[in-house]
């Protein structure tokens, strides 16, 4: 699916540019966007190294485990395959909390860390596990309480009430999260049934 989407984006772009007699647009874009990707990696490297460093301290001091223990009953319902005291629990909780509070920059390091720890529980390393799918369903539908970037942009464009969209955002987020988690449960069940049959 990813292969197909990527191919369609590239091929459609090239075909349209050629049809419009505008081939230099392609080479320009390639130069600009590859540079953008490298710049992003450099920006991300700093903030990422910082948060994984802080997280390592939190983990070694037993703080993450304590937090995960408190929230374990709830999280266990959503991630039945992950052992209660596994480090992945802590990273996933930190990622979800960071997203919740709109601290986007802090969320990615925790999220990538969670993926690595979930991968340790994966019997087939090239295939996504149900826990990963559920985690990403929660992550991509981003339960957000405070959309910080949007509020900042609205303030900059002189909105008379920059935070008025907070309520609508929370309601809309709820729609996406509920739908994604319901679909996730549905696919999980279907996959389990399929495995029993074979």
């Amino acid at each position: 699916m990813v292969n197909l989407i990527w191919l369609v984006l590239v091929a459609a772009g090239v075909v349209v540019a050629a049809a419009q007699g505008n081939p230099q647009a392609i080479s320009q874009t390639v130069a600009v966007s590859t540079k953008g990707a490298v710049e992003l990696a450099i920006d991300l490297a700093g903030i990422m190294a910082f948060w994984t460093g802080i997280m390592r301290i939190a983990e070694r001091s037993g703080m993450v485990a304590a937090l995960a223990r408190v929230l374990a009953p709830v999280v266990q319902l959503v991630f039945p395959e992950v052992p209660r005291d596994h480090p992945a629990m802590g990273s996933m909780l930190m990622n979800i909390s960071a997203n919740l509070l709109g601290v986007g920059g802090a969320a990615t390091p925790f999220g990538l860390r969670a993926m690595r720890e979930l991968q340790q529980l994966n019997p087939r390393p090239d295939t996504a596990t149900p826990s990963m799918c559920t985690f990403l369903a929660i992550n991509t539908t981003s339960i957000t309480l405070v959309p910080t970037t949007v509020i900042a942009l609205r303030t900059m464009t002189k909105s008379s009430n920059p935070t008025e969209i907070v309520v609508t955002t929370i309601l809309a987020t709820l729609c996406s999260t509920v739908v994604a988690l319901t679909l996730d449960r549905f696919f999980r069940r279907r996959q389990r049934l399929k495995r029993v049959e074979t």
Binding site: W6, L9, V10, G13, A17, A25, T29, V32, S33, T34
Partner: peptide, 9 residues
């Protein structure tokens, strides 16, 4: 790159 090509074309 893919998004850029699709947009700028």
């Amino acid at each position: 790159v893919a998004v850029g090509i699709f947009r700028d074309s």
